[in-house]
Amino acid sequence: MKQYKLIHCTVNGKEREAMIDVRASLTDLLRNDFRLTSVKKGCEVGECGACNVLVNGECFNSCIYLAVWADGKEILTLEGLADPDGGISDIQQAFIDEAAVQCGFCTPGAIMSAVEILNEKRLLSDEEIRVRMSGHLCRCTGYENILRAVKKTMLKRLGLSSEAPEKQEG
């Protein structure tokens, strides 16, 4: 017997409603019901971070999050970072500029972790950034460029420097 539930949530700033199968993951809800395909299905067991989104401001791997739990929550995916004209955000631009994207499969998830960090509006050490970005597997870039893009955007937003540091310290 199939079981359904009506849920209401805010997705990328818009109020949404959906009648969902209770067996759905949040990844299923975002991709299939809301067509937000930046949310990737990588491992589907919470290991790789490709499906990472913000729920009430915190990062969650949506593949191991029941869609029914999204009821009443505020969800942000990569699509929600674009401005009304479709322009991309500074962190996305930094990923491009620092060559932190190759195949791009890990990118939306990694950027959402960066967004969680940037929203804290504080200066993190290189080591802290590493720890905070450690829930993402990237098979292409070797991570250094990702860390550089996050650091550059953090410094810029804090008004500390507009230049990307040449090399990560430590």
Partner: peptide, 9 residues
């Protein structure tokens, strides 16, 4: 424990 997203859930 795990990684940051795991520590949130």
């Amino acid at each position: 424990v795990g990684g940051p997203q795991i520590r949130n859930i």
